[in-house]
Write a protein that binds this DNA or RNA. Structure first.
Lengths: 304, 304
DNA sequence: CGCCTTCATGAAAGTAAGTTTCATCCGTGG
DNA sequence: CCACGGATGAAACTTACTTTCATGAAGGCG
């Protein structure tokens, strides 16, 4: 059994359900049907026998077993038990409407707000649960020691990349972000051993970002990927993979929740790096805060 | 099949474990051995196969089955999943350190992650709770009907502003964001009745943003402020005020959590606007999604 | 004391669940 | 058009679970 020697791989402590939904797109169609049933109602799945579940997913038992292996379980009984445990742990959601992720056509604003907030908060929490501190540690270490850090991201992930760049910059790390692929590519070509390149892509399939990360890696830089899908193409050009845990819903809410999750991960890395050298980071932060002070009015203290 | 008219079977509320230890003395010696194992470590028992457990209890599988029936379960698999669920439900309370908000100097990465995620999630939830749907409704209405929307923000709030602009743009609303104050001012000067200006500032004291919003208001545009502090200066130049609810902590975590809260609000407004005209929004979203399709690689499916 | 009854128990037979193997099918790229 | 590789389910197979049944220990009674 040759396993891919990825850094993150085996570890899925937080939620199995979360882990499964992350893996969902990397599964074969038949396995996806199984996965969807499992994610939709873990407790129910745990109650079913393998034959039962296979029938419900309109597939064979063999596929269910394959699915078990795909998500890192030994066999069906193991999956069953894990599911039962997960389902039990899970506090029941405040409102059934809210969990689906998508907004019903007739929804009023209050519902919309509740739904979005629920999904956003969940994405943040679940992301934190499944983040591997060991991998984060290594990434923090690499960034803390890097001569230079490039952060790549396109579209919505571009904001996150940019945010990360700004944060690192504020604590005195030399960091860059490029909105333009060509510039990014030329920058990546100038990276070398000891530098770090971070690529952010929700789907993990953004070719621009992958390409740039690949270039950076070829030049000897340490590459880090931040994506929602642990087996997406971007992970193949990354030394370290960090994953978010936004549930797969529609393109709309999925991407939105994912962005918050990405920011949370960025925050964690940032604080980790800052904590590595508190004194210096604090000093840098204070200096930058002071710099914008003249652009603030009054006290800003308020309310009662 | 004729069922034995057993205890009460189907429903033993509180804990199965408690239930079992309750009727332990009424069990036969061999069953008691099984029961003791189960009570001692439910999670472990759930992991074992029936043969395994029987051996461990120095008895036969038949006795284990009898035990299952004695405690009201149908069979061994049922007992197993119930045990797994029970064991999982015994949750450890969330780490007290985590809720405080700030990161202690000696914190390791796992703590940092937990703290940040907790605060981020809380900020999102609390923001949603205190958001006034009526105000949102009016803002959505204004944006939905606007000839043009300007979004202003500086520093970290600039990312949020930019994000909002991009979102509105994607559903076919004419929206602008200006990283530069001068450009923003000139743009604001060109706004008029029916247009909307949104100013984003965590502290509510960012003079650049206030100034621009003021300009927009003077030209007759509807002004919206998004801030964490409901009585800050920015609220004085806004027709509608939306507030986030990030707790006041240190400059670090406060601003970070606030940014997520801001994004949540932006998401809500966005979805609200999109919901106002689903068909059109969906069409626009699909068109934009299609546009970037060629920049994605493969399906993202991988190995097995 | 011997015989009957009751019940706990495990061996073994029987059934169901889970797992592996393999032939087939389908899309992909030469 | 064919070779290739992955996805898939049928069927063979293995393991786990359940039932049946014979045994024997313990208690009651003549």
């Amino acid at each position: 059994m040759a396993k891919s020697p990825k850094i993150s791989a085996s570890h899925e402590p937080g939620g199995l359900i979360v882990h499964i939904s992350g893996l969902l797109p990397s599964l074969s169609p038949a396995e996806q049907r199984v996965a969807r049933l499992v994610v939709a109602d873990p407790a129910d799945a745990a109650r079913r026998t393998i034959t039962d579940l296979a029938t419900a997913a309109e597939t064979s038992e063999a596929t269910v077993i394959r699915f078990c292996r795909s998500v890192g379980m030994e066999g069906y009984p193991q999956l069953r038990i894990r599911l039962a445990a997960e389902a039990a742990r899970r506090v029941e959601p405040p409102d059934a409407r809210v969990v689906g992720g998508d907004i019903p056509p007739g929804a009023d604003l209050a519902q919309i707000i509740a739904t979005i907030a629920f999904n956003d908060a969940r994405a943040v929490e679940e992301t934190a649960e499944q983040l591997d501190p060991a991998v984060c540690e290594q990434v923090v270490e690499a960034i803390g020691a890097a001569g230079r850090i490039d952060v790549y991201g396109a579209g919505a992930s571009g904001f996150v990349a940019s945010d990360f760049q700004q944060k690192l910059h504020r604590i005195g790390r030399t960091a860059f972000y490029f909105p333009d692929v060509h510039t990014a590519l030329t920058s990546a070509a100038l990276l070398g051993r000891g530098d770090v390149a971070v690529g952010i892509s929700h789907t993990g399939t953004t070719s621009d970002v992958i390409e740039v990360l690949e270039q950076a890696r070829a030049r000897g830089a340490t590459t880090v990927a931040l994506t929602n899908f642990p087996r997406s193409p971007i992970t193949e050009v990354a030394d370290f993979v960090l994953t978010t845990a936004a549930r797969e819903t529609t393109y709309r809410s999925g991407a939105m929740a994912s962005r918050l999750a990405q920011l949370t991960v960025v925050d964690c890395l940032f604080v980790g790096v800052a904590a590595r050298n508190r004194a210096r980071a604090r000093k840098a932060l204070e200096a930058t805060a002071e710099a914008v002070q003249s652009h603030r009015v009054g006290s800003g203290r308020r309310r009662g």
